[in-house]
Amino acid sequence: MGVKVKILEVRDLVTGYTDLNILHGISIHIKSGEIVSIIGPNGSGKSTLMKTIFGLLRPRGGAIVFKDHDITGVKPDAVVRLGMSYVPQEKEFFPSLTILENLEMGAFIRDDDISDSLERIYAIFPALKEKRQIRAGSLSGGEQRMVGIGRALMLSPDLLLLDEPSAGLAPVMRNMVFEKIAEINRAGTSILIVEQNARRSLGISDRGYVLETGRNRFEGRGQELLENEDVLRLYLGG
């Protein structure tokens, strides 16, 4: 394997919603083909970091570089076009639209034939193909998560951001989601995950970052973090 290039680099990122900053200089990077997890307790700024990378929140300091493009402060519609997709934590689907229409919305900016992408997503999530004419709002939580991830894959992104992909799911479904994430990654998509369920998430990750109150606390290989005593004690519940 050759030297992996950094697909995303975040340097000294500072941001917040009101007068208060939530992130106080976070630095992370993802190399092409990696799965990277960001873990940390509630309020550590994990989701805020994702929203800022994707352009939903304006950075107050620092820089974000994606595939050699400076995307600091760039709006989501432009970020999408560069090849990054984002699955938010909640409301990750259009409830009154059918599964097929949800996927079509994921490909809104494309004017060409999207049937290849649809087939690829149905291959990952066969359940979606059977139910493609059913409204997303009437699906189970696990299926809705599949719709959300499927929608984000319609543009064949180089980098997929997943905000709490296993939140609110039954254990069986959680396993399914992590297996699918690994599968999507093997097909060539780099993935950044923010997770509460740190053990499972680090288990499939190449590397991980531990955040605490908007600062980098630890970083390392997925296994290293799982075995690190401080990380164990602080974030993995012993």
């Binding site: 994707f54 076009r81 938010p88």
Partner: peptide, 23 residues
Amino acid sequence: TKIGKSIRALSDNIDLARISGID
């Protein structure tokens, strides 16, 4: 139609529409 579906998508979830790159 694509525009019709996107109208429904917007009324469902405008944030997700923006995230999906919809104008």
